[in-house]
Amino acid sequence: MHPLLEFTAVSHAYGERTVIDQMSFSLQNGEIGCLLGGSGCGKTTVLRCIAGFETLGQGELSLGGRVLANASMAVPAHLREIGMVFQDYALFPHLTVERNIAFGLSALARSERKARVGAMLVLVGLTSYAKSYPHELSGGQQQRVALARALATKPRLLLLDEPFSNLDVDLRERLSREVRDILKHEGVSAILVTHDQHEAFAVADKVGVMHGGRLLQWATPYQLYHEPVSRYVADFIGQGVLVAGKVSGPRCLELEVGEFCGLLPLGFETGDRVDVLLRPDDVVHDDASPQTAVVVSKVFRGADFHYTLALPSGQRVLAQVSSHHNHAIGEPIGIRLELDHLIAFKQE
């Protein structure tokens, strides 16, 4: 199966400053991808290169096997069959919702255009707002109009640039799930850009972690969380703490909280000093365990507590504990590790 989008060894610079550095990834038909990273990492520039708003310094970009751009040519943006939803939605304030959605459909016969706009209004749940103007809508409704307008032209690929950043947290979570459902319903492939990993994990099938213009890992959210390829990705995704350990034998690892065998990935030698990533869900509260840690701080989150615990050495770890276990700060509690996915890096 050929990928829908192929982004191959692309580099892009503004003057002397390299913004995208030899970046490659691909997206299958019907997949939703996400570029995740802090501000200035190059993720929006990647979107602009795909859309046709930037030229490629090096590399090649193709959609459905058709080359859209390389260092010597570029198909104009309006001929790429790519839709875009901007951060500020970019709706036309003087047009009603239905006329905003119809904007890119001038080539269709009037009856077809009307049917397509009607179908889009149903899809995004805004049928009763067809005659309203953008300023009469909430932020979430404006976002859905922008999505409907982009989908109305039946693009092969949809690009979304920080689409939920102007919304409050609750609405952001709900809308990110809604947008995923709409895209899956329409069978549209999409690429989302965000700095928010909750959003990335809620919407995307594949997530790419970017840093300094480079793509560090392109994988499923599950793989990023449990199988990060570098310290940066391990640190960036989810919460966790790196604790010191030593390789004590073939595939065995010694940590302050005990020895673990059979888990260590290949490529380490006895005596190697390593840093092991411990996630809050790796540290299990167990009253029967001889190993204890002292509660340093805690955050109550309804269904669970998020504890920061100090081991005897002073090393701190995080633990996610059922909310029925309410322990006082300064209290020692029994813990054990459940290392189903051991993530270790050689110490520098």
Rank of each mutant, 00 (worst) to 15 (best):
V257A: 15
Y225D: 12
L79H: 14
V257S: 13
S111E: 15
R144A: 05
V179Y: 06
A115S: 13
A102F: 03
D205C: 05
L68D: 07
D287E: 14
N100Y: 06
G212H: 13
V117P: 01
K131G: 05
L151T: 04
T220G: 07
V85S: 04
V179L: 05
R177N: 00
G118I: 08
L61R: 01
T292Q: 14
L158S: 03
F236N: 12
M120Q: 13
Q141S: 05
L242E: 04
V284C: 08
R279I: 05
D205N: 12
E348D: 10
M73Q: 15
G187N: 06
N29H: 11
S189N: 09
L216M: 11
N70E: 07
R48K: 14
S26T: 15
A115K: 13
H285P: 02
R273F: 00
M120N: 00
I82D: 04
L68V: 04
G64Q: 07
G30N: 08
L158I: 11
G38L: 14
N100S: 07
P134C: 01
Y89A: 08
V229F: 03
M1D: 04
E54M: 10
R113K: 15
R251I: 05
A130N: 06
H78K: 10
Q143R: 09
A69G: 11
Y222M: 09
G83N: 09
E60I: 04
V193Y: 08
F260R: 10
Q217Y: 06
L255V: 06
D168Y: 11
R231Q: 15
Y89E: 10
L159G: 00
T96G: 11
T8E: 13
Q347T: 09
L158K: 09
D168E: 06
R301N: 13
A204H: 14
R279S: 13
G258W: 04
H285E: 14
Q58H: 12
M73A: 09
E269I: 02
F300Q: 07
V46M: 06
K154D: 03
G334F: 05
N166E: 05
D170L: 13
G258A: 04
A150M: 02
R231H: 00
R279W: 15
G64E: 04
H78P: 03
G37V: 00
S62H: 00
S11Q: 06
V122S: 14
T308Y: 02
Q22F: 00
F103H: 05
V296L: 10
G262D: 08
L278S: 11
N70C: 02
T153D: 02
G83V: 02
S297V: 02
Q217T: 10
G213W: 10
L342A: 01
T8G: 01
A190R: 04
Q347K: 15
A219T: 11
S132N: 08
N166Y: 01
Q22L: 01
Q291F: 01
R144C: 05
E54V: 09
H226L: 10
V209F: 09
R80N: 00
V85I: 14
L224H: 12
E348C: 01
A293C: 04
Y129F: 13
C261W: 06
T18R: 15
L126H: 02
S138P: 00
A200V: 12
R336H: 15
P3F: 01
A303I: 12
L253V: 10
E227I: 06
L157P: 07
N326R: 12
E348R: 12
A115T: 13
